[in-house]
Computed example of a mutant assay.
Amino acid sequence: MNIDLSGKTALVSASSAGIGLAIAAALAGTGAETIVNGRSKEAVDRAIGKIRETVPNAKLQGVAGDLGTRAGVDQFVKTVPGTDILVNNLGVFGPGDLFSSSDEDWERYFQINVMSGVRLTRAYLQGMMDRKWGRVVFLSSESGLNIPPDMLAYGFSKTAQLSIARGIAKFAAGTGVTVNSVLPGPTLSDGALEMVAEAARKEGMTPEQKLNEFVLATRGSSIIRRAASTEEVANMVVYACSMQASATTGAALRVDGGIVDTIA
């Protein structure tokens, strides 16, 4: 399958590292003019340099801004007034059960993981519908289906994304705009590797080994028996953004390694 997005613009929120960076690099490799976002200019510049190492002729634009706040999104949209492809990748995660998560924790997950995508989609969807073509992807998680009791607020935010994406897909029915969610499982992202780095050091393991051990210990239904790479997640996102995915909308596309134990 030859995915060619030449002539299209693609915005990936929080794309200066991790899964977002892998998605931005993959979209740039399809010929799309890709907008790289991070909270600081330094982080964005580093990301652009990394992408150019693998995609030397990439068409890239870097725009710094904190898209986890309404003010940040408002300012960002002034700089980037339109896009053909929107990947709502921005998100935070961490431990916290019902008793240990404060009201402030719940609000933080809601504002960053949920409202960032709502605000960006609200800003760009009308233009896509007017042009009769567009792609919106929300980066959810298998935790949105398998709600982890020790990451409750995070799991809630990922379930909310699934609901929102499905509703927006139905709102955009018949316009040529597709809206989907992609659900990674544990992934070898910068954030996940950093989370296990100290435990890995104490046990004489690499962070990659520790994360794979985590998968086996806590996600026993995993079929691939390991964490996914960021590139494997990016591949699914690029498909959802492609011309070839024109009949895929309102879907929850799992790239969880088979963790969610269902045939549907």
Rank of each mutant, 00 (worst) to 15 (best):
G96Q: 08
M115V: 07
G134D: 09
S141E: 04
G191I: 01
P148C: 05
N89Q: 00
Y109I: 10
S140Q: 04
T159W: 13
G127D: 10
N146Q: 10
G134L: 10
R119Y: 07
E104H: 13
N180L: 11
R108G: 09
S116H: 06
G144E: 12
V179Q: 11
G117T: 00
Y124D: 02
G127K: 11
K158I: 12
A169R: 04
F93R: 05
L120P: 00
G96E: 05
D130I: 07
Y109D: 10
G176K: 02
K170I: 01
F110K: 12
S189I: 04
A160C: 11
L86V: 05
D105M: 14
S163G: 15
A173G: 08
S101M: 06
Q126W: 01
T187N: 08
G167W: 03
M151N: 14
L98V: 15
V179A: 10
L152D: 04
T175W: 00
G155I: 15
I147A: 15
L125Y: 06
F93K: 01
A192H: 04
Y154T: 08
A173W: 05
N88G: 09
N88F: 05
Q161F: 04
V182H: 05
G174R: 03
P149W: 12
D130S: 12
R122K: 15
K170Y: 01
N180S: 14
T178Q: 10
M128I: 00
V92E: 11
G94L: 10
F110C: 14
G191F: 01
G174V: 02
Q126R: 13
L120V: 00
G167T: 10
T175K: 00
E107K: 15
L98Y: 14
L86I: 07
D150R: 11
L152I: 13
S181A: 15
L145S: 10
A160R: 11
P95F: 14
N180E: 08
E142R: 14
V177S: 03
I168Q: 03
I168N: 03
P184E: 01
R131H: 09
D97K: 02
M128N: 01
V118R: 03
K132P: 00
G91Q: 10
S157D: 05
Y109V: 08
T175Y: 00
S163P: 02
L188K: 13
A169N: 03
E107C: 13
L86W: 07
L162I: 15
W106S: 14
F99E: 09
D130Q: 14
L139V: 14
V92I: 15
S140A: 14
S141N: 06
N113F: 08
N180R: 11
L162C: 14
L125C: 06
V182N: 10
L162T: 12
F138C: 00
L86S: 04
Y109K: 11
S163N: 12
V118G: 05
A123N: 08
M129E: 08
R122H: 11
A153F: 05
Q111I: 02
Q126N: 12
L193N: 02
G155N: 15
G191P: 02
D103Y: 07
E104R: 15
V136C: 03
A165M: 02
M129V: 03
S163R: 12
P186D: 13
I164M: 01
